[in-house]
Design a protein around this nucleic acid. Structure first.
Length: 216
DNA sequence: AACTCGGGGCA
DNA sequence: TGCCCAGAGTT
């Protein structure tokens, strides 16, 4: 496990490598953002943006999503994959927003997580982007990077990873750190072929050192 | 904790 | 072709 000073160094390296890291899902409208983030599970933001470009012309309010047959909505989002469950969840979620939240997207993580298709990660992303609530959403990249570097333990659950990060990272840096760690995981500390030889954090990364040993 | 959903992107 | 992806729900 890394100490506070080492974690500080990790954050500084992330900042140096990806100073302007930012997600591609940026919708000023909280409802559209929510839909976009729900759609983004297990697929890239670029693909989601391609779908929402036309989707949001046809559907604007929660009522629009529940007024069409399930099969039609499924067909409209087919190209992103996992489309059957996502369409079902979106109809459920819209129904709940209409009935329980007066047609408006709830603004806290706990309320967001009650919605169909909204888990911990999605709730954090929506809360931080749409409602400016500091958050560290733990996706596969954030989890992998945290575990490899030793910011948290290997066995930690997603929830434990999130709690550790929120405890160790200054609150005002939560959201930007989330984005930077995703970039770090996506372009440098990749799942399959991490670039350990050129990693500025190699000296404090137990996983990196282990990998370097295997290579040589 | 393991399994399923899934088409698109990329090597 | 094969393999994975900015997850969530169910068993």
């Amino acid at each position: 496990m890394l100490n506070n000073k080492q974690i500080r160094r990790c954050l500084d390296v992330f900042a140096e490598m990806f100073p302007d890291a930012k997600g591609e899902l940026n919708h000023s409208n909280p409802f559209e953002l929510l839909i976009a983030v729900v759609l983004s599970a297990q697929c890239t933001d670029k693909l989601v943006n391609k779908v929402t470009a036309t989707l949001f012309k046809k559907y604007q309010k929660p009522e629009d999503y529940v007024s069409v047959p399930l099969e039609e909505l499924q067909n409209d989002i087919r190209s992103i994959g996992l489309y059957r469950n996502k369409a079902k969840n979106i109809q459920k979620l819209c129904q709940a927003i209409i009935e329980d939240y007066d047609g408006k997207v709830p603004e806290t993580r706990d309320e967001l997580m009650k919605l169909a298709g909204v888990g911990r990660k999605t709730a954090n992303v929506v809360a931080s982007i749409a409602f400016n609530e500091p958050a560290i959403a733990v996706d596969t990249h954030v989890e992998r990077v945290s575990k490899r570097l030793g910011i948290c333990r290997w066995k930690d659950s997603v929830r434990e990873v999130e709690e550790t990060l929120m405890r160790k990272v200054p609150k005002e840096e939560w959201t930007i750190t989330h984005h930077r760690m995703i970039f770090f995981g996506r372009y440098h500390c990749k799942a399959r072929n991490p670039n350990c030889p050129e990693c500025p954090l190699l000296d404090l990364c137990r996983e990196g050192k282990k990998r370097m040993k295997q290579i040589s």
